[in-house]
Design a protein around this nucleic acid. Structure first.
Lengths: 366, 366
DNA sequence: GCTGGAAATGGTAGCGCTATCATGCTTGGT
DNA sequence: ACCAAGCATGATAGCGCTACCATTTCCAGC
């Protein structure tokens, strides 16, 4: 029996390799008493397999501790998908989490990854050129690129499927996964109100950014709902950088009727605001509560650690890649691309930079 | 001719797939007029190929824009190496760069990656257990794990090859890639001296950490060499955290004879020190120069941006992975593991947080 | 009970590459 | 000049999996 003798030869190899962990689809098939094809079908969740058979196979897979060989799979299925990840100067800590998610997913789905950084508008063109020559099957975009209509258009012209992660403005014909920035800002502001804050400042993000606007809108809505009037003197303009938060906070916090809480629309600006508070001799959170948005590493490295809104970045990235792979698959099957918009839940992380407002008398005592 | 008809079939596929970019080793071979084997040899830089042939092949590869199919390669060579990356709470921004390097290398060498995070000593045991069951071929360790003798011992017991990146204390029998922390600290301190600083403070890192010590030694050596006596009053103890830098700087900077420059042994502490300076009403760098170490994202997100020592993290990570893969290979061939220690060059990045000391009179003018 | 067609399963032939051995073609020592 | 030794190259056989088609099984409907 050819198969058997082959099996023996294999066995000899197995031992010399990674601790016996080379269990193939054949082993599983043999164990159950079906053909490898059937096992393959079960693995790929194809239909046309009797429920009973499927169960037996799944059990055998568990017993034998089988895990499919990605290389073989992608070779056989001609499905060596190459996905490009283009980033442009995001917060490094954001990227880090993002990469973790992407990595997890990509090793699971056995796709090749191409990481490209690009700076400035020409950078984008260069990178796209490169993608064209190298040949990729899809692109995944972290912010801020995920919000760029220019990039979106270019990719559409190239007929490349792509998914934006953490986009604020889901373009109608582009798939994306994000959180509800408006709702998150609303929730955070409401939380501050609930703590007892009446004068709540806000530091806006970059005016070009749509999610900057969403966050601001959430803030306004929450105040309005709480019956608090929005005072433009309490709203500062920032650009998502530490420095801009630093500066914006200065004008907010040096006012005699300074806010008792400041909501910065990202963590870098919040950290800058904390620095300003300290410089002005204000304690955080005793004299002023400062909260951020994103829960980047900055939020937990500064002191006091920032209360902030957390996006499940790594999950979102993984999901985004998964969506992208699905799109690529369906594109190959000639199906039209139906854009999907996934919304993930955010969470408010309470750390040491926020508290209920402390009455003046008490603060003065210090 | 079978091969030819096969080629035709292939061609039909090519068109339907990723924009014609499926050039195989056969195409290259045919183009040159040699066998696929020879091409394979050239690709893998094996010897026993005539220089003339090699050249022709390389040229054809370029002309045809061939790039090897990783899946096929790792399938054929039975070399589906799985490498685990275990990290434990490093600076996120460090991880980010680290991952970038790893990613680049891993997609180039077609190895599977397993990312695991672990917290605390039990965490390590759990993760190692997992590695055992999943089956990995090697482990790559970013700091601080790369410095852990406990982890090193555990991995050695499992007979798993591993490489530590950015280790300070290259264990004699463990491969590693790092920079010369001592030399870097020496260089940075000397730079401060060259700027004209006489009283230079230092904030130490965590006392458990060996590289913390190396950096301190570099500082001491540089001062000594410059004929400046080390004043223990100018040396603060930190723990690599922002907060600890904040606190340590307070005692250094509130002294009447405060140092005109402070060298913190990482960026987080330097950022904390900047915050303290601001809080004390000191301008950076006019009143006090503050420099860090590592060039994490923190360094360029705070304001003023930090002058710091940069490690080529992403390069180091890539190199580390490459070394690891080589070790795995040679282990499979039954060769003994010879630990290798690679040293990469660091660079001093000058940003806005450092300058020559400003004479008292001038400062007073402000 | 028999037939037709759908559902379930199996067989075969590679995916692109490399390990291995076989084969030519050089060398150089005697 | 002859043969062992060495080098450059080629032919063959899979790696583990899946696409595709062939076959078997099953059951509805007459």
């Amino acid at each position: 029996m050819t198969i058997r003798s082959q099996g023996v030869r294999l066995l000899a190899r197995k031992i010399s390799r990674r601790g016996g962990s080379i269990v193939t689809i054949h082993d599983v098939a043999q164990h159950v008493g079906v053909s490898p094809m059937t096992v393959s079908r079960v693995i790929n969740a194809e239909k046309n397999v009797r429920e009973e058979t499927r169960k037996k196979v799944l059990e055998a897979i568990k017993v034998l501790n089988y895990s499919p060989n990605m290389a073989a799979r992608s070779l056989a299925s001609q499905d060596s998908t190459r996905v490009a990840l283009i980033y442009s100067n995001p917060s490094m800590s954001f990227l880090s989490e993002f990469l973790l998610g992407i990595l997890q997913q990509s090793s699971q789905s056995g796709c090749q990854l191409l990481i490209e950084s690009c700076e400035g508008p020409e950078g984008v063109a260069d990178v796209l050129d490169k993608l064209r020559t190298v040949g990729v099957d899809g692109v995944i975009l972290p912010p801020p690129l995920s919000d760029s209509t220019r990039v979106a258009k270019a990719l559409k012209d190239m007929k490349l499927p792509f998914v934006g992660v953490a986009t604020s403005r889901p373009l109608p014909d582009v798939s994306s996964v994000s959180i509800d920035d408006f709702k998150a800002a609303f929730a955070m502001t409401s939380r501050l109100v609930a703590l007892g804050h009446k004068r709540i400042g806000f530091i806006k993000g970059h005016p070009n950014s749509f999610y900057s606007e969403l966050r601001y809108n959430g803030y306004v809505e929450a105040l309005t709902k709480a019956g608090i009037k929005v005072d433009q003197a309490c709203v500062g303009q920032g650009y998502f950088t530490y420095r801009s938060g630093f500066d914006a906070a200065e004008s907010l916090l040096s006012r005699p009727d300074r806010p008792t809480a400041v909501f910065a629309s990202n963590d870098d600006m919040a950290a800058g605001a904390v620095a300003t508070a300290h410089r002005l001799g204000l304690e955080v959170p005793d004299d002023v509560t400062i909260v951020g948005f994103d829960d980047t590493s900055m939020a937990s490295s500064v002191w006091p650690e920032l209360t902030t809104v957390r996006q499940p970045i790594s999950d979102m990235a993984a999901l985004g890649l998964k969506m992208l792979l699905e799109q690529i698959k369906s594109k190959r099957q000639g199906q039209a691309l139906k854009p999907v918009h996934e919304i993930r839940d955010f969470a408010i992380i309470e750390r040491q930079s926020s508290s209920a407002p402390v009455p003046d008398a008490e603060v003065g005592r210090k």
